[in-house]
Design a protein around this nucleic acid. Structure first.
Lengths: 148, 148
DNA sequence: ATCTATGGTCAAGCTGCTTGACCATCTGGT
DNA sequence: ACCAGATGGTCAAGCAGCTTGACCATAGAT
């Protein structure tokens, strides 16, 4: 495969990721979750199942734990999450979503489904599923970082 | 398609984009182009064919023209590009790559080809081509923004 | 019992972006 | 030809989000 072809693929991937992120964020904000940034959403995906520690969150976001801690401060202040004592480790705090945090997460999923729905119209559902499977094989559970 | 499925696809897309960007940047830096950041590479892809104005660059990167101008300052100072008079518009300057700028661009293409080569090993060349075509249809020539 | 590693926070600083103001030049209407 | 508004570009100031460095409390190992 030619270098220029690889570069075109890279550019398309980046453009798609950037547009998707922007649209999800705009949709979430439009649904009444003001002051939310994409990073909050990515944090929520890590907090969603059972909560997480600041250190785990930092690893997931690819930032320092200080940065993650500041981000937690912010979402706690805005009412999307709360710090609880960690069961079994008195040093750690378990960050969990509040009901409003869950509502925000559901809103993000709805918007994502809208955007992906447009892709389905363009490419067909089967092709979009294939796209998802291939992308999942390319980037299996790495940290989610800003594209640049 | 379920909301959770759309969210998983979104996460995979973002993770793939983030990893690709990081690896290309690391590869470029490792080849001797120190101090380069991903944003520089994205700027170069716009400058590459025939140069561009600061305003065009700003639109391509999705930032203000002041930010684009600062970025141009930086790459000019580092020897990757130069400001020339714009033929046909005395207000504007045409930013063009220097030879070193072209070398950096070629290096980025090489690294991108390496990474995409790994995807080809995973998925096969045909599937990767399909991936590229689909992504190109999803995000046709939008600005390349940071993922968050 | 101690020593080291780990989770977390506080504080300070930096980088890259934004907003706002401004000048030079282009463009279109009169 | 001229003027008014639009456009390209830069300067300056401010800020948000991240980093590094220092520090404390607790865990786990020896």
């Amino acid at each position: 495969m030619q270098n220029s072809e690889a570069m075109a693929l890279s550019a398309a991937l980046l453009a798609a990721a950037g547009e998707l992120t922007q649209r999800i964020n705009e949709g979430v904000v439009a649904r009444g979750f003001e002051g939310m940034r994409p990073a909050h959403g990515f944090a929520f995906t890590r907090l969603a199942p059972d909560g997480a520690t600041v250190t785990e969150l930092a690893a997931h976001l690819g930032v320092t734990k200080q940065a993650a801690s500041q981000l937690v401060d912010e979402v706690v202040r805005k009412g999307y999450a709360e710090r609880r004592d960690h069961p079994g480790d008195a040093r750690a705090r378990l960050i969990v979503l509040t009901e409003r945090g869950w509502a925000c997460t559901r809103a993000a999923e709805e918007v994502a489904a809208e955007v992906v729905g447009e892709w389905v119209e363009l490419l067909g559902e089967g092709e979009v599923r294939v796209l998802g499977r291939h992308l999942a094989r390319i980037a299996p559970y790495g940290p989610i970082r800003p594209a640049w």
